[in-house]
């Protein structure tokens, strides 16, 4: 279920963002501040969630009136050790919340919690993670729910943006390949359909969830999927470079993923997503403007 506890949005007294140093966290902090919300960003420097005193360290920084946004993760979790670390980090957060029960908790999960072959995904789709990363989020969602703090879980689909540090297959890698005047390399013909969401849209949705004190689970997806070939073509067109799109022999069967975004639309009917073409062009332009990213 998903409900807006406050039909009319209002700023919380303060939002503590745990994991503010990462790709998503930094964007969330920027978004909330732009909306005039008092934000306390926390990174590993302030609270190392894997340290022995992490729970107390985080609890010391929380007030009962806070909204806590929990984003910290070693992502993607690919090894058993990374899975265990991610669970340990969530444990620290849960213990901190046991000491200081905040007013609202927002957990950033992932669509990796759903089965790989789930084609039309809703929030009610079966949780059947194919890998450790999804299993990690399933476990952490349950841990967050066990705190008894009013909880909103956001499960974003693949996020793209200029400052994404990951180089996984998709818009971010294609953009870097195009910027470096390399070929954009597709798996097979790039037939797979995926829903790609702009980082700014994720941050804006998260802000809406905070300001409406949302409770429950919401997929953060646009509802419009595109094939990797279409993404590559959009990236190539936006790059201004004569990027070539190269197909490679297919190694794995084609799977598609679409989202049924009825819950999101019903909750936030005015919300307008960044169109993929515009979002990819903006990400390309932003990346050019900041060579460090």
């Amino acid at each position: 279920m998903f409900e807006l506890v406050q039909q009319q949005p209002s700023r919380p007294q303060r939002v503590v963002v745990m994991g503010a140093g990462g790709f998503v966290g930094a964007s969330v902090v920027r978004q909330l501040r732009a909306e005039g919300i008092d934000v306390s960003p926390l990174t590993r420097r302030e609270v190392d969630l894997l340290s022995d005193d992490a729970a107390q360290g985080l609890a010391d920084r929380l007030k009962p009136s806070d909204c806590l946004v929990f984003i910290s993760a070693v992502a993607p979790a690919r090894t058993a050790a990374q899975l265990a670390d991610n669970v340990a980090m969530a444990r620290s957060a849960c213990e901190a919340l046991g000491r200081v029960k905040v007013a609202h908790l927002v957990y950033l999960s992932s669509d990796a919690v759903y089965a790989d072959d789930a084609s039309l995904v809703t929030e009610a789709s079966c949780l059947r993670p194919a890998g450790l990363h999804g299993a990690m989020h399933v476990a952490r969602e349950a841990m967050m729910a066990s705190t008894q703090v009013p909880l909103c879980i956001l499960r974003p689909t693949a996020i793209y943006g200029a400052s994404d540090p990951h180089n996984s297959y998709g818009p971010n890698r294609f953009r870097r390949q195009a910027a470096a005047a390399q070929d954009i390399v597709l798996f097979g013909g790039g037939e797979e359909m995926r829903d790609h969401i702009a980082i700014d849209d994720v941050a804006a949705l998260l802000s809406l969830c905070i300001q409406h004190r949302a409770k429950g689970i919401l997929n953060a997806a646009t509802g419009e999927s595109a094939s990797f070939r279409q993404v590559a073509e959009l990236v190539a067109a936006a790059s201004g470079q004569p990027a070539r799109i190269v197909e490679t022999p297919r190694q794995a069967p084609i799977t598609h993923r679409h989202f049924d975004t009825a819950r999101l639309i019903a909750a936030f009917p005015r919300f307008a997503f960044t169109r993929l073409s515009g979002g990819l062009a903006a990400a390309g332009a932003a990346a050019k403007g900041s060579p460090s990213s």
Binding site: A124, G223, A262, I265, P269, R270
Partner: peptide, 21 residues
């Protein structure tokens, strides 16, 4: 039941794609 739930929001989806913004 699942299919029914999906088709129920057909009008809202179209409005969201077009005029609600």
């Amino acid at each position: 039941q699942v299919n029914s739930g999906r088709r129920r929001d057909w009008v809202l989806r179209i409005l969201h794609e077009t005029v609600l913004g």
